[in-house]
Write a protein that binds this DNA or RNA. Structure first.
Lengths: 119, 119
DNA sequence: ATAAGCACTTCCCTTTAAGATAGCAGTTCC
DNA sequence: GGAACTGCTATCTTAAAGGGAAGTGCTTAT
C-alpha cells in the first residue's frame, strides 16, 4: 500500500510520535496554561498580577492551573516574607524549555491573522 | 515596578501576543486535531485509515474534527471517483505551515519523557 | 438476494471544563 | 474597629467536549 517510503514513519514510530504529542497536550491542556507560561516567560509575576493580565480568569482556575504547572515542574512558587505577604511565580529552568513552543504558537497565530485578512 | 525593560513586552504587545496564542488554540482545540494534522503531515490518508491509526476516536469525532479543519483551510478533502468510493484527506499548503508547531509538540513530549525518567 | 465495505450522520448519555459567587485568613492602614 | 489588600479555597451551576451504538446511502462482490 505504498506511498513513498521516505515520507512515512513506520507504524511504531507513528505511535511514539502521537504519544509524545499527547503528553505535551496533557501538560498544556485547557484554556489557560499556555497563556500563563507565555506570561511567566517574560519574568516573575505575582498572583493578582497574573489574574489582572489574564483577563477573565477566576481565582479558582488560576490557582488550579498554577498548581498543575507547579506539580509538573514547570512553575516555581515562592512566598516572600515581605511586609504584605506576596507570592511570586516564575518558570523553572525546565519550564523555560517550553518557550519555543509557546513562541511558535504566538507566531502562527499572528501569521493566521494576516492570512485571514488577505483572503 | 521595574524588571529589566528589555525582557518585558509592553502591555499592548502582551495582549496581542495572548490573542495570537488564543487564535492558534482555537484552531487546534480539542483532543484530536493536532494528532490528525501530525498524521496528515506524513501524507494523504483515507477516512478509515485515519480512524484506525488514531486509536480510540469515534466516527462522529473524526468527521467533526475533519470538517472543522477543512473549514479553516487546514485540510483538503477529495472524493475520488474510484470503484469503491473513497475520500482522501491531506494538508493544504496552509495546513503545512503548522508542521513546525506539531513537530515541536512531539519533540517536547519526547524530551519530557526523558526528563521524567531521569528524576 | 444477501452480505460486506466505505464514509459518514443521528441520537443519547456521561464526563470534564469553565464560570459565577462567596468566603476565609492574615496583614496593614486609617 | 472597620475597611482594604493579598492569596487563596469551596460550592454550585452551566456549557461544552467526548464516547457508544446504531443507522443511512451508495457500491461492489458472492
Amino acid at each position: 500500500m505504498g506511498h513513498k517510503l521516505t515520507e512515512n514513519l513506520s507504524d511504531t514510530d507513528c505511535v511514539r510520535h502521537f504519544k509524545a504529542i499527547q503528553d505535551t497536550q496533557y501538560i498544556l491542556n485547557g484554556k489557560w496554561k499556555v497563556l500563563i507560561i507565555a506570561m511567566l516567560a517574560q519574568g516573575k509575576r505575582r498572583y493578582l498580577e497574573l489574574q489582572r493580565i489574564l483577563e477573565g480568569i477566576g481565582s479558582k482556575m488560576l490557582s488550579k492551573e498554577l498548581q498543575h504547572l507547579e506539580i509538573n515542574g514547570i512553575v516555581l512558587r515562592t512566598v516572600t516574607n515581605a511586609k504584605p505577604i506576596s507570592v511570586e511565580y516564575e518558570l523553572t529552568a525546565y519550564g523555560k524549555t517550553l518557550k519555543p513552543l509557546t513562541d511558535e504558537m504566538a507566531r502562527w497565530g499572528i501569521a493566521h491573522k494576516h492570512h485571514l485578512r488577505n483572503k
